[in-house]
Amino acid sequence: MRAYLPAYEMETPRDLEAALGRMASEPGVWRPFAGGTDLMVLLEAGKLPHQKFLNIWNLAELRGMEVSSEHVTLGALTTYTEVQRNKTLLREFPLLCRAAAETGSVATQNRGTLGGNIANASPAADSPPALIVYDAEIEIVSAGGSRWVHYASFHTEYKKMNLHAGELIRRIRLLRTHAQWKQYFRKVGTRRAQAISKICFAGAARVEAGRIADVRIALGSVAPTVLHAVRVEELLRGQRPGSAVLQAAQDALNAEIAPIDDMRSTAPYRRNVARNLLAEFLEVLAG
């Protein structure tokens, strides 16, 4: 443990209101602490800059799942394990379930939360591509009230997002319109389990009469933030999935991504694999 532990404080607020009140009273000082699977790793390495945390793990307002005719709404504290156990999610939102199943292993899935994965804002996180494909909305709450934002525009630049001091992610809402879409998810990591993504691809499309009527594509680890591949989507809409459109779509993707070399992989690898996964996605749509 490389951190100077006595410097770190943590409190357990009674309820959401108390938590938001605490955050409002000293703006930017108190940070939420959920499952700790990101924060404790930083602490261990002596790299956790913030020192005051609010333990939100027990806040009932941030837990639970609700299913209405239009939406599935997930509390920010929904763990990866809970995602995989939910029947509606398994049926209609397989990409999110796949992402959850491929995140860490059992112990991490028991503690890691969707809200934490979003707020940690890593470009290599695995649930964000799925959330973008499903056009998730997230509810952000503060002492001043609540707002809903489209998740696709939530991350602005590397590790920056549309979340201000004093705000918490409360819920994530998914539209139940994708059940009939063809869906594709592939995470390429350093190994098969317990791996950080070198690249992650999530895609879904509504195929009507052999043509792509609508399509959503998002990728992890290919840009400073999780990437919503809007230009590829535009190009594919109305087309038949097949070799005719493949090259153009791959070129569009190539122009849209900006991968880097790091200790886990290389930019050329990420570029090539991104193209190949796009091809595989189109095969799924054609099949």
Binding site: S105, R191, R192, A193, A195, I196, M263, R264
Partner: peptide, 27 residues
Amino acid sequence: LYENVVWQEGRMVNAQMTNYVMPTSVD
């Protein structure tokens, strides 16, 4: 297949189990 020490000026830079990966039970 898996174990790749990434060197920078004589120093291992991926000195964590997250980044220097050994096979797990599914590999």
